[in-house]
């Protein structure tokens, strides 16, 4: 998977872009729960797949964008589908693979059409009633934001460590990869923590 696709919001003015983030999350939630059932009904999976392609169109994205979201999964899906066609029949294969593609594609569509801050704002708003339980919604939002920020940061460190490892021809050792990755991440966390303090997070 290309890390640059993480949290990659593409601004636009389509109906999908304008839909409130809360609704998008709700749809995602319903699809997630429904996927347990749709795995058994291949027709529903296929219909949802068509609806998903339609949603991408409505958001102003072509099939190419959809494919880019699903591409990291093609090997896994293809493999699972082949096994299922052989063992339990093609209907189940369409049902299972189809619902996975739908979920991944719709989750990606939410990310593509919603600024991450809008998603986090929604979570913060949903968490507001929990304030009496000692949940600070603002703090929760901050956790999510910094988490979203750190994923590409650490992925980039991983790439650098990997390059250094290849340059030193220590290409096979997992430990030679993970130890420097974790140590550099800890140092990065120190710098980031200091920046958070300087920007008034603890105040």
């Amino acid at each position: 998977m290309r890390t640059s696709s993480l949290g990659l919001f593409r601004p636009g003015d389509s109906p999908v872009h304008r839909m409130p983030a809360g609704w998008k999350l709700l749809i995602l939630l319903v699809l997630g729960v429904a996927s347990v059932l749709t795995q058994h009904w291949w027709g529903v999976s296929a219909a949802l797949l068509v609806a998903t392609i339609g949603s991408y169109r409505a958001a102003g994205f072509g099939v190419g964008v959809l494919w880019a979201q699903v591409r990291p999964l093609w090997f896994l899906l293809g493999f699972t589908a082949v096994v299922q066609v052989i063992t339990v029949g093609w209907q189940r294969a369409v049902g299972v693979s189809g619902s996975i593609v739908v979920l991944v594609a719709v989750a990606a569509l939410v990310t593509l059409t919603t600024p991450t801050s809008a998603l986090v704002d929604t979570v913060v708003r949903l968490a507001r009633p929990l304030a009496p339980l000692h949940v600070d919604p603002e703090r929760l939002g901050l956790f999510l934001m910094v988490g979203v920020r750190c994923v590409p940061l650490v992925a980039d460190l991983a790439r650098q460590v990997r390059e250094a490892q290849i340059a030193r021809r220590a290409t096979t050792s997992t430990r030679a990869f993970v130890v420097p990755l974790v140590v550099r991440s800890l140092r990065e966390a120190d710098a980031l923590g200091e920046a958070l303090v300087a920007r008034g997070v603890d105040d």
Binding site: F9, P115, S117, V146, V148, R149, A191, L192, A198, R199
Partner: peptide, 14 residues
Amino acid sequence: FLFTDPDAQIIMPT
């Protein structure tokens, strides 16, 4: 406060 490494002080995604 402005730090040496801008990567470490950018907090939000965009």
